[in-house]
Design a binder for these strands. Structure first.
Lengths: 150, 150
DNA sequence: AACCAACGTTGGTGATGCCAACGTAGCACG
DNA sequence: CGTGCTACGTTGGCATCACCAACGTTGGTT
């Protein structure tokens, strides 16, 4: 279209890993914009969503569920606790653990974040039909399954 | 499958942006491993590939073609030039510009990197049939097109 | 001549994803 | 019982990717 603003080299542009990277990075941008409205970031959302869905958990469990490193969970939980969205309490049954639970405010925020994420999905998938969205989800899920349970 | 190693919350796991992020991040890991064998990183590959495909270019052009910020191009070109993979020469026709060209060694390395990347694609797409790979590529390309030419 | 735009460069910032190390606490085995 | 292994939370660090602001230099336009 524009001779002065050429696209990526064809060898890159048609490469699946490049396409994945670019689309994911676009999705990430849209998500980050959505999260910014809540003054939160990706890590925070993942934790809130996990807590809203599966209930209280230890930090280590949360990390495993969300694919976040233990050390990064610490910082994110610090943020969330500082805003009163979660409570960190020692586990009486295992004194190594902290039990993280949603507060009422946290549960509300989790819902609002989920709404935001849902809107972003629609933005992201706008050019695809319902069938195509399902197909894309299917293909990605298959890829992920294959590479996760190795 | 394993009660002690639960997967991500369902609300995350089935979300397209999450699937994209996870698969892309897996692809990134595979790529990074491949690149590490060449002792190079993603930015380096993109630049080498662009140069190999479209010939010498200014740093600004390279940046636009590869989706890399001008300032990051500087550092990457420094690395590549330091290893003798590219040459940085002032453009006689426009003294603001540097013309970046592949050396012979650089062209060789570009080929080897391309081979590596090709192998990674096969690893990545292993669970998909040829038709499915094409479909995935088609869907991702459509998404990307829609979100780039805004 | 005056202005504005583009270029390369320097020097930041932030998000994400890792890894190593430490002290504390639970657990299993001898 | 103690000894050793493992898990936990925490601190601190690192690398990559992506972006932005500012500066001086150079080209082009008016």
């Amino acid at each position: 279209m524009d001779a002065t603003a050429p696209q990526s080299p064809a060898g890159l542009r048609t490469t699946p890993s490049w396409l994945l990277n670019q689309t994911a990075s676009h999705a990430g941008r849209l998500l980050a914009e959505g999260f910014a409205a809540h003054d939160l970031r990706g890590y925070h959302y993942r934790l809130l969503a996990a807590l809203a869905e599966d209930g209280p958990a230890s930090q280590a469990d949360l990390g495993r569920r969300c694919g976040i490193d233990r050390s990064d969970v610490v910082a994110a939980v610090n943020d969330l606790a500082g805003r009163g969205l979660v409570i960190r309490a020692p586990d009486p049954a295992d004194r190594r653990r902290n039990v993280i639970s949603l507060t009422d405010t946290g549960a509300d925020e989790a819902h609002r974040m989920t709404d935001t994420v849902t809107r972003v999905q629609d933005d992201l998938l706008a050019p695809l039909s319902t069938a195509e969205r399902a197909e894309l989800t299917r293909l990605l899920t298959r890829l992920l399954d294959h590479h996760t349970r190795r």
